[in-house]
Amino acid sequence: MSERINVLKTYKIFIGGKFPRTESGRYYQPKVNGSPIGNICLSSRKDVRNAVVAARSAFEKWSGATAYNRSQILYRIAEMIEGRKAQFIEELIIQGETKKAAEKEVDTTIDRVIYFAGWADKINQVFGSVNPVATSHFNFSMLEPTGVVGVVSSESSSLLGLISSICPIIVSGNTCVVFISESKPLCGVTLSEVLATSDVPGGVVNILTGKRKETVPHLGKHMDVNAIYLADSASEFKESLRLDAVDNLKRIVVGKESDLYSNKFENPYIVTSFMETKTTWHPIEIISGSGSGY
């Protein structure tokens, strides 16, 4: 009896909730200790543009969903990662981690999703305000998601770094286009399969693989991207992204993740850095001492 032939995985990109092959029709082979770990899509400019279109289309629905709903969907992501724990650990090991480190990374990843899931319906309670203006008006400020966010995620931390980029961005209602680690892409591709089965609407998170040098500039120059998150503060793309961003004044946020395992990383200020403050005024007919606020 012959030995069973293994079914090898085709690694695909993730756009608009679907798993297309890259438009480029090309792939690359990241290597660990000299041996290739998979055939990974080399995303093209067209893939970037398709992903931005998908993210923009998803924005209205996702940002319009209730905070409670978004919170539950993030929690669901955590549940799904928990269910695939073994696979993530295996992939981290293939990418060169020790078993112990891999287990710790997956556990911390799950806990991090839950941490940010909880912020969905609290951000505006903590960071919104009612402003006591000196005229006869009711005035309040609330935070709203910035829009479509491009993410150049951590190159070295392929799972925890990735999730720590995505969650604070989408929890408030942003949608995103994410470049995952170029040298360690396995967990990112698997994460897209998790997202596809976690009730995250298609297009909220779009995941691209490939050579960053080829693709990151297209994200930086895209006129329908509102913000960029650059996870590595020492990234070679920092200045070029800031220059590219000028054309439509994208917000550029550079990560401070010196230690992804530290409690410091779990804070709401990374969530608010991808939000805009909107202030709304309405007259109050008369309040003492001042006339009508019309």
Partner: peptide, 28 residues
């Protein structure tokens, strides 16, 4: 007011300013 992509929205009033009221824009 929630669908306007703008940093300051005046409803039934306009061009009001106050030091306690955050001012600034979205997008460009």
């Amino acid at each position: 007011t929630s669908q306007m992509r703008a940093g300051v929205v005046w409803a039934n009033t306009y061009n009001k300013f106050d030091p306690t009221s955050p001012f600034g824009g979205y997008k460009e």
